[in-house]
Design a protein around this nucleic acid. Structure first.
Lengths: 195, 195
DNA sequence: ATGCAAACCGACCGGTCGGTCGGCTGCCAT
DNA sequence: ATGGCAGCCGACCGACCGGTCGGTTTGCAT
């Protein structure tokens, strides 16, 4: 198999880089750090990637792949819009909090000036996701015959903010955990905080 | 007047530094950049601040001062809890979007490893703010006799996320603007997106 | 006018960064 | 056996970084 991700050196480099970028930040992580964590020399590392920017771009692109596969695709199989939205919230939170998918928080936090063309490709994928959320919310609104007092676009950004901000404060040793967080956030979006 | 903020060189340095940090990031801005923007040499700049870290700390501390004066203090004058929460949302959004107060977004985004003691002071002020929000939400819940199905703490983090995330996507030339954003977000928190 | 401290300059330092390069090594097809 | 090439090493480069320092300018109190 030519696509074994565990042995593909590029995939492995991205995994390690994601961990380091998340822990120390993009600027705070040198190419030497990455190479050393892989038991590799810097020269050896440059055999697989042409630049640090290329690593960051592929990292972020991979983060969007993860979102596609672990959030969007599963959700698309659900027929009922309301249920679809609830599951989306749960899965999106799961991905943000996942110990494994560190690429996600790197993508959320780092807005390093990538070369414009690469930057546009990432931004475009992000926008697609917002639109997906917006349409889903609008669909639920239609089905619920809500008075339309809330703009679906604003609601999408609100939901995105709630969830994506979690990485800024979440600590595993804290009192709030993934499961309740998902149900709480869903409750807020569906009925507000004061039902 | 010894406390004229417009002529106090330290205040002016912080203002310029905030603008540069917001535009280029903390690591992407050199002490030379800051000095040049002030028509100053690097040596001259070090006459006012001992280190780059000291600038960042004072910037963040100032951001918390702004939050105190422009959000918390005005809100404390309001008697009715529900009205207090609505105004808090509006004022907090105003501060995040303010062209003038760039310190806020720098504080939101940069989590550069400050010396632990300084870091703790900032984190402590942030925590105070979360607690303030949480208590206010709990107060509204009590007054509304809500079924308590939503945890006030989770709601506080959700609200904080919605608002603080705005700087990540907001563009002045876009369709969503400050005023509607405030009313939309208040509506979502109070009654959900599907009333 | 003069003394003095705050403000400032610009050259400089050690160190680190992203990135380069010439050459070595081990595997695989022929 | 051998040619070729992906994978890798480690020494190296120029640029730039945060920070220092000795000396000069400036403005104000006396």
């Amino acid at each position: 198999m030519t696509r074994d991700s565990s042995s593909d050196p590029r995939q492995q480099i991205l995994r390690i880089a994601a961990r380091l970028f998340q822990q120390q930040g993009y600027d705070g992580t040198s190419m030497n750090d990455i190479a050393a964590a892989l038991n590799l020399s810097k020269g050896g590392l440059y055999h697989h990637f042409q630049s640090k920017d290329e690593i960051l771009f592929n990292l972020m692109d991979h983060a969007m792949d993860i979102t596609q596969e672990r959030v969007i695709n599963p959700v698309l199989k659900i027929a009922d819009p309301e249920e679809r939205l609830r599951v989306l919230i749960k899965l999106h939170i799961g991905v943000v909090l996942s110990e494994r998918d560190r690429e996600i928080t790197v993508m959320l936090h780092e807005n390093h000036p990538l070369p414009p063309s690469l930057r546009k490709r990432i931004n475009s994928r992000k926008k697609d996701y917002v639109h997906f959320m917006e349409k889903l919310i609008a669909e639920v609104q239609r089905k619920r015959e809500s008075r339309g007092s809330v703009n679906a676009r604003a609601a999408a950004f609100a939901l995105l903010g709630m969830i994506n901000w979690i990485y800024q404060w979440y600590r595993p040793e804290g009192t709030l955990h993934e499961k309740e967080l998902a149900s709480q956030y869903a409750e807020i979006l569906f009925a507000g905080a004061f039902k």
